Amino acid sequence: MGHDVTVATTDLPERNFKVYNGVKIEEFNIWGSEVTGFSGEVESYKQFLLESNFDIIMNYGAQQWATDLMLPILDKISAKKVIVPCGFSGLYLSKYGKYFEKMKSLLRQYDSCVYLSNNYRDINFARKYGAAENCIIIPNGAALDEFELKPNIEIRAALNIPKDHFLIMHVGSHTGMKGHKEAIKIFKKAKIKHSTFLIVANSFGGGCIRRCLLAEKLYKYSPFSKLSDKKIVITFLTREETVAAYHEADLFLFPSNVECSPIVLFEAIASKTPFLVTDVGNSKEIIEWTNGGELLPTLKRANGFVKADVNKSVKTLENIYNDKGKRQFLSVNGYNSWKNSFTWELIAKRYEALYLKLIDDNK
């Protein structure tokens, strides 16, 4: 859109460029957060914030170093300040008690707080403590230039998935909190035949990667999988391959345990794929906005995390598997709502309008 944009982010050894599509990248060798502690080029980052002549500085996500290091110096930064809290995932955890006590007043120091939902813990926190006057809601989405055309990749052939299989897909890293365990149980118990459950996930070396790969291996040799012609595939894919898999999938299954506003749901409807999701983050709101999916029966916990009710979710999966008309209905509605309201191209204009208004107000 012709603006001068800089992204300040973690220094990654594999990143060998300083400009991407015209966006400048400032790298800092920093790890941690206020609660876990910081290490690295902390003072360099603070000086960068204080000395750079930006019109707008936007913090994306609380509870991480790029935001947490800016919080104590908010009043010293002359630029208009915007934050997208992204859910406050630690709000109900005792170790974050002091952090969120300070956040009650810090939110008021921002010129605008962008929330991804009208009814989730972060915006409700702001309302409860009188910090909602500067609120605006701008949802997540999926990119038109990425999803409008299906990539020319034969993903079923590449992953050895039969052409006639009903393909169920999940996208989410092996953090242990994306519901892989419940999703595998739901798929295994469901009375559906000639089907494949594909989990696309990257690994950080821990989390649930070992458990997931073991479940895949054991199911491969299970007599139940052979009798019903079902298989589980767990793999990492490139971004283009992932988009191709979205387009090829018949259903998106996402029983995640904690979210803010799951982008994967928007990516599913952008590929005309209906979804099933736990009542996590603002997934219920996304269903109301898009009419592109349904809720899985969900068990809620006191710490803010959720878990799919596996046995009841099995019935939900079986019902939608056997109802082609409903899947088509959700597919069409979801795709049309995405095209009309939830492309990043449209959402970017809403952010631009906010930024320009803040600058105009300043003038």
Rank of each mutant, 00 (worst) to 15 (best):
D4S: 09
A8G: 01
P13Y: 05
P13W: 03
R15C: 06
Y20V: 11
E26A: 15
E26K: 14
E27F: 12
N29S: 14
I30E: 03
G32V: 02
V35S: 03
V35E: 10
G37E: 01
G37C: 00
E43S: 08
S44Q: 15
I57F: 13
I57A: 05
Y60I: 15
G61M: 06
A62N: 14
T67C: 14
D68K: 05
D68V: 00
L74P: 05
D75A: 04
S78P: 13
A79H: 12
I83W: 11
P85N: 04
C86Q: 13
F88P: 07
Y96H: 09
Y96N: 10
K102F: 05
L107F: 12
D111L: 12
G130H: 10
G130N: 11
G130C: 09
E133W: 06
N134H: 08
N134E: 07
I136E: 02
I137T: 14
D145C: 13
E146I: 08
E148W: 04
K150Y: 14
P151K: 06
P151S: 06
N152P: 00
L167T: 10
H170K: 15
S173Y: 12
T175Y: 07
T175A: 07
K181Q: 11
K181Y: 11
E182L: 01
E182M: 01
I186R: 02
F187G: 02
K189M: 12
K191P: 06
K191V: 11
T196P: 03
T196D: 04
L198H: 04
A201D: 11
N202H: 12
S203V: 00
C208L: 13
I209P: 11
I209N: 15
R210E: 14
K217Y: 06
K217H: 12
Y219T: 11
F224G: 05
S225C: 06
S228P: 00
D229Q: 10
K230Y: 13
I232L: 15
V233F: 07
V233Q: 05
F236K: 15
E241W: 10
A245I: 12
A249K: 06
D250K: 03
F252S: 12
L253C: 11
I263F: 01
L265W: 08
I269R: 06
I269S: 08
A270T: 01
A270D: 00
P274S: 07
G281D: 04
E285N: 05
E285T: 08
E288M: 04
W289I: 09
W289Q: 14
G293H: 00
L296K: 06
T298L: 02
L299A: 14
K300H: 14
N303V: 00
V306S: 04
V310P: 02
S313M: 00
G325L: 05
G325R: 03
K326H: 07
G334Y: 02
N336M: 00
K339W: 03
F342D: 01
E345N: 01
I347H: 03
E352N: 09
A353P: 02
Y355P: 13
K357N: 14
D361S: 13
